[in-house]
Design a protein around this nucleic acid. Structure first.
Lengths: 141, 141
DNA sequence: TATTGTTATACTCTATAACTATA
DNA sequence: TATAGTTATAGAGTATAACAATA
C-alpha cells in the first residue's frame, strides 16, 4: 500500500466528514446514529437480537441497552419467539417503521452532500470506486 | 446530488470501515482514536486549549476531560501561559511526542489498507478524488 | 463585562464478566 | 452442557449549564 504522505489523515478526515453529516441528519429525526441504524435495519422486518448484533457490528450487551433506550420511546418491541423461547425477536412499532424509513431515505438523499465540492463526473467515479470495496454495504442492507 | 439508491448507506459503510481500522491501529499504541488525534496534533508543538478544541472539533469541556485522562498517563502537560494567564498551553511530554509521532506514521502507513481490494490505479484515483474534497485534512495537519 | 478554561451533571455508546432462562 | 439474552459494572466520549480566574 504505497500512497502519498498524509493520506491516512485524509481518510480520517473523510470518515469524520461523513459521520458529522450523519449525526446532523439523524438528529433532525431525533435519533443518534446507533439508534438510526437500528431502526433502518428493522424498517423492512423483525430480527433476532443475535442477528442484529452481528449486522450492527456490536456486542450483545451493547445492543440490549441500545434497545432498552429506544424501546422506552415506543419505537421497537421485543417479543419472545415461539419455537425456541430463548430467542428474542425485535420488531419496530408502526411509528418506529415510519421513522426508520424516513431516516433511511433522508440519509440516502442527503449524506452524499459531503461530495458537493466534486464535479458531477468525479462524484460518479467516486461512487463507483467506493461501491467496489467489499463489505462496504453494511448495516441496513 | 443525484446518486444511485443505497449510496448513503455505502458512504456510512466506508466511514465505519475507516474507523474500525483506525480503532485497531490506535489500540496497538494503547490509545483511543480521540487520544491519538490529540497526541498527533501535539506531536510538532504545543497548542492552546481553545485552538485544540477547534482543531479537534470538540467542545471545550470535552477537551478538558480528554486532557485529564491522558495527562494522568504522563503523555501531556498543561502550563499556564504568561502574557495572558487565563490561557492554558498544552504540550506533549517527550514520551507523548514519541507516541504521537509513532501513531501518526502508523496510521499513515496502514489506514490505506482499507483500500486493498481496489486495483493500484483505482487506489490512486480514489486518493486523488478524496484529496480534492475541501476541509478533509482536518485534525493533525 | 467578556473570555479562558474547568467543574458539575447527565446521557449515549461500548466492552467484559457474571448471571438467568431456556434448550 | 451449551446457547440467547440480560444485568452489572466500568470507562470513554460528548453536550449543556454553572462556575472560577483573569483580563
Amino acid at each position: 500500500m504505497t500512497s502519498q504522505p498524509g493520506f491516512g489523515d485524509t481518510l480520517l478526515g473523510l470518515a469524520a466528514l461523513i459521520q458529522r453529516r450523519h449525526i446532523q441528519i439523524c438528529a433532525e429525526h431525533d435519533l443518534t446514529p446507533a439508534q438510526s441504524q437500528l431502526l433502518c435495519t428493522l424498517r423492512e422486518g423483525p430480527r433476532r437480537m443475535a442477528d442484529l448484533a452481528a449486522i450492527l457490528g456490536m456486542a450483545k450487551p451493547a445492543l440490549s441497552q441500545l434497545v432498552d433506550r429506544i424501546e422506552t420511546r415506543g419505537l421497537v418491541r421485543r417479543t419472545a419467539s415461539e419455537p425456541d423461547r430463548r430467542v428474542v425477536t425485535l420488531e419496530a412499532t408502526p411509528e418506529g417503521i415510519k421513522i426508520g424509513r424516513a431516516v433511511y431515505e433522508d440519509v440516502d438523499a442527503r449524506l452524499p452532500d459531503v461530495l458537493v465540492a466534486l464535479a458531477p463526473e468525479d462524484q460518479q467515479r467516486f461512487a463507483e470506486l467506493v461501491s467496489a470495496i467489499p463489505h462496504i454495504r453494511c448495516p441496513s442492507t
